[in-house]
Amino acid sequence: MNAAGWHTFVVGLLAAGVARGTPILFATLGELITERAGVLNLGVEGMMLVGAMTGYGVADATGSAWLGLLAAMGAAAALSLVHAIAVVVLRADQVVSGLAITFLGTGLSAVIGAPLVDSKAAAARLPSASIPALRGIPIVGPVLFDQNIVVILGFLVVPVVWYYLYRTRAGLHLRAIGEHPAAADSVGIGVVSQRIAYVAVGGVFAGMAGASLSLAVTPGWVEGMTAGQGWIAVGLVIFAGWDPVRAAIGAWLFGAIRRLPLDLQGVPDLPLFRNPNLGYFLNMLPYLFTIVVLIVGSRESFRRRLGAPAGLGLPFVRGRR
């Protein structure tokens, strides 16, 4: 392959990687916010599926992809509130409730979404937002400025989340309720109400993640179309040490890894890549990574060192220590 070929390959991989990483990015940021507030929500996969299905269905019915996106955010947030009530108010086990949310979301989206599968009628899609003045810049142009609008939104939301977490009063309170809820309570911060709110925020992000899949990145609805990306998001939060910027880099990296097997099929002159089984192994990588991160990350001492919120996974009861 010549230089021009490599250039096309790399730019194509980066552009597609960033696009494919966007749903993971939203889901990861949402889970990160939820966990920063001290609540573990393993229902990301289920919430994403409900978001993807709702988004596509509403867009299909109304002809407006934007309405679809809104509906997706609302539906996933509603599902996350089930989790919030179970674990924050009723103090159920967070792992069990989260898994239940994933099962519930997977099942609900499959049943309700069944008529939408193979609906060939082109449902509305979210528009692309290429900026003509900038997309001509070599490499950077096509990767950053010739993308779907959700991808651009993803670029913008990362600094916003970072700024919110580290520079605002509300972000300070968010970190406090996740680290030491009793301390936050003792200075008059409403731990329960804020935790519920941030679980819902996580749901909104998961809904966006789902809708950006079904309305932009891989348009259409297929049962189980998230294919484990919700779990990758859960793993990425740990991998990123609960930091939004690292989470974003990780999400885009995963987008690229997911895209790699496809792109490599077009590179015939590398003997190693001719093995047809290689694609399967590359496809496996994100899941392998997620499993490793989740196993390693479940070690208490390791999590402390990574900077896990100290109150993560623990219910808060005033007066109990």
Binding site: L172, R175, A176, E179, H180, A182, A183, S186, A310, R321
Partner: peptide, 8 residues
């Protein structure tokens, strides 16, 4: 038991 957030 102090009500301080140690990461802040």
């Amino acid at each position: 038991q102090f009500m301080l957030v140690s990461s802040l």
